[in-house]
Amino acid sequence: MTLDAIYQRLTTILRDVFDDDTLVAGPDLTADQVDGWDSFAHLRVILTVEKAFNTTFSAAQISSLKNVGELAELIEAKVAK
């Protein structure tokens, strides 16, 4: 799966989680820039991503993500395996 495709699906997921159709998942997007992205919303994002990409993340991975770019790269690495 290409990074482009991953970002596309992440956009859908973010719009679903935050009910905001203006959101676009890009590498520099961070939680601070999104209304309502608190720690529970973060888990919802992660769990929705896990389901959508049929993968799981470790606690360390979940808490270390700095921005959507890192999430996308993590997904890319997981899905490639």
Partner: peptide, 14 residues
């Protein structure tokens, strides 16, 4: 176990 450790979810949120 991961969701319990990270957020004290009693069961997998799925």
């Amino acid at each position: 176990p991961t969701q319990w450790n990270v957020a004290k979810f009693s069961f997998d949120s799925r």
